[in-house]
Design a protein around this nucleic acid. Sequence first.
DNA 1: CTGAAAGCGCTTACAG
DNA 2: CTGAAAGCGCTTACAG
Lengths: 360, 360
Amino acid sequence: MRRQALNVTRYDPGVSSAAPGTGDETIERRRPVTAVQVARHAGVSTATVSLVVNGKTAGRVSPQIAARVEAAIAELGYVVDRAASSLSRGSGDVVILVAPDIANPFFAGVIAGAQEALGSIYQLLLSATDVGCVPRPEDVRALFALRPAGLLVDAPNVRFLRDLDVHAPLVLIDAPSTEGVAPSVDLDVASGARQLARHLLHRGHRRIGYLDAVTGTETFVLRREALREELAAGGGVLAGPTPASVVDSAAASRAAVDAWPGWRDAGVTAVVAASDTQAYGVLHAMQGLGVPIPGELALAGFDNLPYSALTQPGLTSVELPSHQLGLAAAGHLRALIEGRAPAAPDMLPAHLVVRGSTAR
Amino acid sequence: MRRQALNVTRYDPGVSSAAPGTGDETIERRRPVTAVQVARHAGVSTATVSLVVNGKTAGRVSPQIAARVEAAIAELGYVVDRAASSLSRGSGDVVILVAPDIANPFFAGVIAGAQEALGSIYQLLLSATDVGCVPRPEDVRALFALRPAGLLVDAPNVRFLRDLDVHAPLVLIDAPSTEGVAPSVDLDVASGARQLARHLLHRGHRRIGYLDAVTGTETFVLRREALREELAAGGGVLAGPTPASVVDSAAASRAAVDAWPGWRDAGVTAVVAASDTQAYGVLHAMQGLGVPIPGELALAGFDNLPYSALTQPGLTSVELPSHQLGLAAAGHLRALIEGRAPAAPDMLPAHLVVRGSTAR
DNA sequence: CTGAAAGCGCTTACAG
DNA sequence: CTGAAAGCGCTTACAG
């Protein structure tokens, strides 16, 4: 790799060092303003400062004093130290979302929904686990040690929860079959899979190939098995090999290239991928192999990612409501945190979006 | 929307409530184990517990005592309260990456690189700002109030930094023209743009259309202007309208549909999009309009996202090394945090990847 | 309406 | 090698 000129500028802390120019100077950082300084500046106690910054002045602090404190806060640029605040209160105002595949556009919707539900009171931070891996209990435990207000954990399995054994606000996302262990907000992927099965049967397909995902999450088991059952009910069958790949287009493409001879020999006329991301890979693979879609092979996926409307042909997909998922999960968590009875959410409905990839 | 049966299970805290069955019971949470409990259990002081959990036993704690403490920790399931730890030390071990567009696959690489550089000592959390928006100084200030070990901020502009005025470990990512304000690790997008310009000129294109991004980030200005200059140097020109869209395929598709008459009338034979994500939208728009790519119109983008190898035709793109970017930025931050002199990183090189979308 | 004081759980000089 | 004690910056009963 060709190395080029350095473009990293040294940070100037704006504070004189102990021994300027000697080379072994230590950088002194300007220390953050504390409540003590604000209190001194406004001529009040730190208790009053705390009441003001937390908006608990009603009947406790006179408007005049409050105004004086506000002024001091603005002048000094005081920001509450949330580490200290968390320690004092027992927990903070951060909500952490743990997800295995942040880069998946599906999560943009979940994140937006969660932010909407959390409002400006809580701050949402994301913890990315390794792509294609379920989060490990020890990772989540380390996150709990941060004393967040609560945790949102995407797609863990039952075993994960047994190992976790943590008792704090926690809501699971898209974690079917964890009932009774922790609250979860789920997607009705089974219904979506059945709609897709009926659509394919209706289009005359009987022998369906399947490209699975290898994350070891329940949702993918559910997608596959619901599809299989509903196909069987209508005289169809999952035929040929059932390869699995990580949720990545390139990996899916390779898997599809390998699987194609088997699918073809098994008389497969349609392929379903466990996710749209993988379906894109299958589409590419078939274009490379000269197998026309939908002419020789129909194709469908799950998620209905934005890009699925843009492929050539457009991709038939089971739409999973990511925004609503984030909204419901964070809303539930918030109720838990605030000690309210959680509003009864639904199992969020999935519905099939039909496009050119399964046209006759 | 059809509502279905509720599938949210109530969380059972496993702890008896104050007034069981009365209905106004408050949920008592099992309180986390503290160092005091561990100390008591092991028959030592909390100071010793602290030394053991922080691995500072060498010459300070006898192996026997250390072993006893370890055993107590394991037995009680003790995890250090990081809020308290942060308060005591002055800052914690969390590194926060602030990025406008977490869902962009480009960030998967940045995140993986940053995690690699941070190792297991620091914990990386992500803060998602609204899509298509530069992070606001107040958001970043709120993040600093969490007392993280440091912050990595993607693509802010100079004005942002003037407003920020925060003096703590901070490294900017892909933030050209912020020299002297804060350290930054940059991508040589200008060089990439010039390579792309020369490639297009060499392929015989002289009148080039451009689809810009509307995030207000320097990197996009640089991409466009470097392309413009290098084209001019070779007798080419940015011609026709220069629409802008958010970094989203669907939005880009709409923008391209609108721009096409203008481009066509201006004699444009190639279009460059500010990002691959947008280029996918242009590709879709042109397929919809019946404009063959590359036959009638060549197309290229920036980022070389994984999916760019899978489109039909494959997308010519300026590869930006996302993994190295995360690695270098986090490495620099880590040096800053630990008071070491940052290793001199490079401005990370970009290089053109030529695919079918600009074939003759 | 306001303040002095205790306490959150940890870390780190300091004394022994 | 080990412990008692102070302190990080905040919040919250409690006393006035």
